[in-house]
């Protein structure tokens, strides 16, 4: 058998990775409400190979459900740094995207991707389970094509992310 090139190994690894994603959903806001129907028999996300998971060490996807304030951001960063590569972040709902209805709040951070790299955003308030399923399928396509490289960006631009984190967390 011929020796496989790095590219071929990566292609096969990505193809396998996208078929078995474990998700830790860090329920920071009201968005957590949309996950039980997504997980259970009504929309049944396990048919796509996704499963909810309880620990950060074994999870592949970090789903940020809803707004993040200064207090929860600190915990989210801990969870994100505990996760092993490859790891993917989905920002869920308009609050993670731009603050949403909490845009003028003294506690809510406005842009998730200044603090941890987000691979995908789901817009809406609230996104329906259909939108979540679509987002998972999009994420699979991104993983397959190698474009979901948030964890690589986090390593490369660590100084940028740490500086932003330090600004809000002190």
């Amino acid at each position: 058998m011929e020796k496989m090139t790095q590219d071929q190994v990566r292609t096969i690894a990505n193809m396998l990775r996208k078929r078995s994603l474990w998700m830790i959903h860090y329920c920071t806001g009201c968005g957590a409400m949309e996950l039980p129907p997504t997980m259970t028999s009504r929309y049944d996300m396990s048919r796509l190979g996704l499963a909810p998971f309880v620990t950060s060490r074994q999870a592949d996807i970090l789903l940020i459900t809803g707004y993040l304030n200064v207090k929860t951001l600190r915990r989210v960063i801990t969870v994100y740094e505990q996760m092993l590569d490859p790891k993917y972040v989905i920002g869920f709902g308009s609050c993670a995207l731009n603050g949403g209805v909490y845009w003028d709040s003294y506690a809510v951070i406005k842009q998730l991707d200044r603090y941890i790299p987000a691979d995908l955003y789901i817009a809406g308030c609230m996104p329906r389970p259909e939108a979540i399923i679509t987002a998972f399928q999009d994420l699979m396509d991104l993983i397959d094509s190698g474009k979901a490289d948030g964890y690589k960006r986090y390593k490369r631009d660590l100084a940028y992310y740490k500086e932003n984190q330090r600004k809000v967390l002190g």
Binding site: L97, N98, G99, W103, D104, S105, Y106, A107, V108, I109, K110, Q111, R114, K167, V168
Partner: peptide, 23 residues
């Protein structure tokens, strides 16, 4: 380290724009 945030004279938008970056 600011005014207590539920006081009426606390300016939430000002605080927010000083500490966070809007998109």
């Amino acid at each position: 380290n600011d005014l207590p945030p539920m006081r009426k004279d606390f300016d939430s938008i000002k605080y927010s724009s000083e500490h966070f970056v809007f998109r």
